[in-house]
Design a protein around this nucleic acid. Structure first.
Length: 316
RNA sequence: CGCGGGGUAGAGCAGUUGGUAGCUCGUCGGGCUCAUAACCCGGAGGUCGUGUGGUUCAAGUCCCACCCCCGCAA
């Protein structure tokens, strides 16, 4: 059988796992090029910094394309010139226009971090954890012009435990997605995969995380806040503010405890032996926090340094 | 040259107008207790980021240079 040419398109850490898997399986196919989103000036000091995918491609000597958009005719011509048999797309961050989608004989295959048709969109893993889903997974999908609406080629599941963070689930999905990809790709090339249209029923949309969603509203039940903290971990992280000085306190890890304490909502009702905050229903135990301008520390350390004092009120 | 916070004991912090380096926790030893993550007593542990830098009788503290960490914004 002819050796197939694959173009990989991806940007985030989820993408890196897939790219690595493709690279490790390069005996079976040719990784002809890597597309990743062009880096912008960002971060402290506004430096231009390459992403992990770009770094990997450079290290392995794979031709690298860092485009800002694929809408232009030149970009699409350049893509066609590679003569790829298929494109593999994972958290790329750019919209693929029709001219790209239709260029490869086997189309563009997306690795998506949810069990479609649920959680289409930008933040499927975080949303699943925030909503308290018991399981999620990855879906291999034949891309079309819609937002994660293409026909499904394969899927794999993983359970979500009630202590999993989005990061934990993410790591698992990356591995799952990578192995699903390398397992099913040969079948795709043989024409042995049957595309299944996504059912209408059960579809949902996982919008990207808005800034305001990072704020913990302590009038909500502790269990919900627990899920929010886990869903936002490790990035961007949940946060609240000290009422006394307005300083930010990031809550990196916390858990709901089924106790009720006297006090006001959002108030630190105890710091010893555990750091407890009263919520609308139940109590939230702070485990790991990060005061403004400081690194992560245990809630215990924050108390020792008097960064958290009993009676402090926390607000969104 | 985007804005800002910070590097002091194993950890988290304080250190006022320069004058013998402190607090909470941990740790080690002892005590109290049926018991304890509780309480009491005692001990160990610090070249105060780097510069055989500058000012000074005297620098953690003031000045200069450099290194590193972090928050925001993107």
């Amino acid at each position: 059988m002819k050796r197939r040419k694959i173009v990989f398109m991806g940007t985030g850490p989820f993408a890196l796992a897939c790219l690595k898997a493709l690279w490790d399986g390069r005996d079976a196919w040719d990784v002809a090029a890597v597309y990743t989103k062009a880096p912008k000036k960002a971060g402290r000091g506004m430096q231009v910094r390459d992403g992990a995918v770009a770094e990997f491609a450079r290290e392995k000597g794979i031709p690298l394309v860092q485009a800002l958009t694929l809408r232009t005719e030149e970009a699409q011509a350049a893509f066609r010139a590679i003569g790829a048999d298929a494109a593999v797309v994972a958290s790329y961050g750019l919209i693929l226009p029709k001219g790209i989608l239709e260029a490869p004989a086997f189309g563009c295959v997306n690795v998506h971090g949810s069990l479609l048709p649920a959680y289409r969109g930008a933040a499927p893993v975080q949303r699943a954890v925030m909503n308290g889903e018991k399981k999620t997974g990855v879906t291999l999908m034949q891309m079309d012009e819609g937002l994660d609406t293409g026909d499904m080629l394969a899927a794999a599941e993983t359970p979500i435990s009630d202590t999993d963070t989005a990061g934990d689930v993410f790591d698992r999905l990356a591995l799952l997605g990578a192995s699903l990809l390398t397992e099913k790709l040969p079948l795709l090339f043989e024409g042995a995969l049957t595309p299944v249209p996504q059912p209408q029923e059960g579809s949902s949309y996982a919008a990207k995380i808005e800034n305001a969603e990072q704020c913990l509203d302590f009038s909500r039940p502790a269990a919900e806040l627990d899920r929010l903290v886990r869903g936002l971990s490790p990035v961007p992280g949940a946060l609240c503010h000290f009422e006394k000085d307005g300083k930010v306190l990031k809550i990196r890890a916390a858990r709901a405890v089924a106790e009720e304490h006297a006090g006001q909502i959002g108030q630190v009702v105890a710091v010893k032996p555990r750091v407890l905050v009263k919520t609308g229903a139940g109590t939230l135990e702070l485990l790991t926090v990060q005061p403004e301008g400081k690194g992560q520390m245990s809630a215990r350390d924050a108390v020792n340094g008097r960064r958290i004092v009993p009676g402090d009120r926390l607000c969104p």
